[in-house]
Design a protein around this nucleic acid. Structure first.
Lengths: 207, 207
DNA sequence: TAGTTATTGCATTGACCGGTGTAGACACTA
DNA sequence: TAGTGTCTACACCGGTCAATGCAATAACTA
């Protein structure tokens, strides 16, 4: 479905998308001007229109690709920590810490972009938002739900609705907008947050 | 700290704030033009500047007052359902359903506005965001934490960190951006969502 | 090397927006 | 009734922005 148009040089295109990601994430769709994006990407304003039809198409490309990339990382973490279980609680905590690590990694701008998408929800074509969701957060939740379902089959968890359980776990683990995110800087605070979240989830779902 | 300037007629001012709330919530700070807000409020463009210094001050006023009003409602719900407990699980479920009811009430635009605030976070003066948080979400969480703390003292819950527990409960109860919010329309789905959230929380924190 | 394509800088267009000035209409009060 | 302050309609300014046109340059390819 993605229109991988063949025009333009690939590296220029990537520079544009990366720069646009940064500015869209920080400033939002309206504030981020194409001039600023061009400057950030080290590219002529005019070149952007050689790769993308207009600002809206650039934005949709950015959220798609960022969503895809971060989902890949997340799915990777899930596979790594829930592949084979030795101690479920400990494994979940480490999964949570890896999760939190992504929030502060070089992928950090993505999560600011997610906030922009959530705010811009009335002005994004439903199909684009649907596609973004499906290959991003939706895919991660499905993957996690599958893993939890397997663990339930092995008697390690009791779960009625795996999708809901996966959603709950993601909520409890992630630093959300209810916690001051200064907590992310402190290692022990990070461990405390994830541990508390995992336990609240685990004792709610454990056999 | 709030500059309740005495200029202008109060009802005009309220109309402006209400209209601005609607448009800021739907379109965001940048997209919502003062002309559109004036039209929505049934007021002259020029009149807005009779009540507010500029667009930024109007925005801060809007998020403050909306936050305050919704927090009042939420605190009310907490007091009503956790004042005296008969069946903790049932009471929490009903609290959750009341909570969800607010999301779909006439206060609904507020929650879209919250998403705008979260997106606009880099462009709001820290002091304004702090004030918004303190008398809004922060106050609600403190109130809920106090109640949970009392319940823990009475032996109905086991809680290490009441603030964290309150945050977890709010997360699990609320329709979040991980669930397709079409679920809010269906009564049985609403009950299922809140019940599942309450149980996941409760078995994580009970006794 | 010759030819094709991408990129660049710059100028321009048309639209929108925040904010101000002004003068008259309107409402309230003493 | 006279006076004070608010509201309204309208025109205006300076600035920004998305998008396009164009001609010159650079990079790639056959």
């Amino acid at each position: 479905m993605v229109d991988k148009r063949s025009t333009g040089q690939p590296d220029k295109r990537r520079a544009i998308v990366n720069g646009a990601l940064l500015l869209f994430a920080r400033d939002g769709y309206m504030r981020a001007s194409l001039d600023a994006i061009a400057a950030e990407a080290g590219v002529s304003n005019r070149t952007i229109y050689n790769h993308f039809a207009d600002k809206a198409e650039l934005f949709q490309t950015v959220i798609q690709e960022s969503s895809q990339r971060v989902a890949d990382t997340m799915v990777d973490i899930i596979d790594r920590h829930l592949g084979k279980i030795v101690d479920l609680e400990q494994d979940l905590i480490e999964l949570g810490l890896a999760w939190l690590g992504v929030l502060t990694s070089d992928l950090a701008p993505h999560f600011a972009l997610v906030r922009q998408v959530n705010a811009e929800t009335e002005h994004i074509p439903p199909a684009a938002k649907e596609a973004w969701w499906e290959m991003g957060p939706g895919r991660v939740r499905r993957e996690l739900a599958d893993r939890l379902h397997q663990l339930a089959d092995r008697g390690l968890l009791t779960i009625d609705d795996p999708a809901r359980a996966a959603g709950h776990l993601m909520l409890l683990i992630s630093a959300d907008n209810l916690t001051e995110n200064s907590a992310l800087d402190d290692k022990t605070e990070r461990v405390a947050m994830v541990s508390a979240g995992v336990r609240a989830f685990l004792y709610g779902y454990k056999r």
